[in-house]
Structure formats: structure tokens, C-alpha cells
Computed example of a mutant assay.
Amino acid sequence: MRFLALHLEPGSDVRQSLEQLAAQEGGHGFVLSVVGNLTQASFQCPGEAGPTVLTGELEIITLQGTVAARGVHLHLSFSDNACQVWGGHLEPGTLVYKGADLLVGLFDAEPGPEQQSAEPLMVPLAQAATVPRVEVAVLPGCPFSARALRMLRTLGIAHRVIEPSQPGSVPQVFIDGAFIGGYDALAELHARGSLDGLRGA
């Protein structure tokens, strides 16, 4: 993995700058840290038809998610001058005020579907002829995807990694073909003991 320091000048579009970086570097990864401020934030709130746009002197709190040549999926949170916190999916039109400094971690190459599928130990050899009851849609570099896969491996639950069929947050967990949610939903099922019947299944 390579670590790249990205400084954004006043007026830079945060999302477009990260898309350009990923395209130039040809890798995939995630944002590790960010400090800076904005004159305008454009972000998508859940359930809204279009982006919300706020202007003013806005302080960036967090920016996290995945960065890849095929696109970025990032969540932004920031505060306004009343210290009210806002956040959502980062959209184009999020503009830097005085400056912003980001640290991005990039893997050296974009893995193909066969590499993504082969990474975890998904199906025990004795069960290779059967289809696992659990499927997980993940994206490279997503920390919650990694946590979900680690939990399933630790519990000894056979699973198959798939690519997301539609845009949205990852991981997307399916049990017996039914969508149950993301990492939080999987962790809640584990806490209730509801995953015990899937061990070795």
C-alpha cells in the first residue's frame, strides 16, 4: 500500500480532486485522514431526491469511504459556524475554503473480480459443491466490508463474496437470498446469537 498526501488549494472540488487522484494513480484505497475547511458543501441526505448544498465557513470533521479509478464512495461530515454538524454522501460541488490536507492509502492495483472473490476463505473444501447461505457484497478498501468478512471467518460461517448489484453503502449482507442489511445488522444478529445456526452451513 502507498500513502499519498493530497493538498487541496482554495476553490478545489473535493470529490473531483479525489476522482482525479484515483484515475492518475490507477489504484484503489480509502481516505485515512482529513483537515481543512469549505466554502460550500454538497452532500446527499438519505431519502432526498437531490443533494443538499450549504455555504459559509464550514469545518471538515470527517471524510471516509473508498477511492478507486472507477469512482469514489465517500461520506462527509462538517460543522457550520454555529457548531451544528451536517453530513451525508459527498457530491460534486464541495469546495475548499482556505485549504484542505488529506492522507489517502492506495493499493497498487485494482483487483479483478476473481481476486476479490478469492481473498477470504469462504467455502470449506468439503462443502465446495454447495452454495453458501451467506453472500456479502463488498468493495475494496472499505473498512466495514473488511470487518464483516473478518466476523464471518472468525465465526466459521461459509460465505461467498459478490460485487454490489446496485449503488449504496457496503457491505450488503444476504442470508438465504434475503437482504438483511450492512455490518451493523450482521453484528446485531451475532450479538443475539442468530448466526449460530449458520456455522458450518
Rank of each mutant, 00 (worst) to 15 (best):
M1K: 07
R2W: 05
R2C: 02
R2E: 08
F3P: 02
L4V: 06
L8R: 06
E9S: 10
E9Q: 09
E9T: 13
Q16D: 13
S17M: 00
E19Y: 02
E25T: 06
E25V: 05
E25D: 11
G26N: 10
G26R: 02
H28P: 00
F30T: 10
V31M: 03
S33H: 05
S33Y: 05
V34W: 04
N37E: 07
L38E: 01
L38I: 09
T39K: 13
F43M: 12
P46R: 13
P46K: 05
P46S: 13
P46W: 06
E48F: 15
T52M: 09
T52S: 14
T52L: 10
L54G: 06
T55E: 08
T55N: 05
E59T: 14
T62E: 04
T62R: 08
L63R: 02
L63I: 04
Q64R: 15
G65Y: 00
T66Y: 00
A68W: 03
A68Y: 04
R70E: 12
V72S: 04
H73K: 13
L74K: 06
L74D: 02
L76E: 06
F78M: 10
G87Y: 01
G87R: 02
H89L: 05
G93P: 05
A100R: 01
D101K: 10
L103I: 01
L103H: 10
G105S: 14
L106N: 06
F107C: 15
P113G: 13
E119Q: 13
P120L: 01
L121G: 08
M122D: 12
P124A: 11
P124D: 11
L125K: 13
A128C: 15
A129Q: 10
T130I: 07
V131L: 12
V131Y: 05
P132C: 03
R133D: 07
V134F: 00
A137P: 05
V138M: 03
V138D: 00
L139M: 14
P143I: 01
S145K: 08
R147H: 08
A148T: 01
L149M: 15
R150F: 07
T154N: 15
L155F: 06
L155N: 02
I157G: 08
R160C: 07
E163A: 15
P164T: 03
Q166S: 12
P167G: 01
P167Q: 07
S169E: 07
F174E: 03
D176H: 12
F179C: 11
D184P: 03
A187T: 08
A187Q: 11
E188G: 04
E188I: 01
L189Q: 06
H190V: 04
A191P: 03
A191M: 10
R192M: 15
R192C: 13
S194L: 15
S194A: 14
G197N: 06
G200V: 05
A201P: 08
A201L: 13
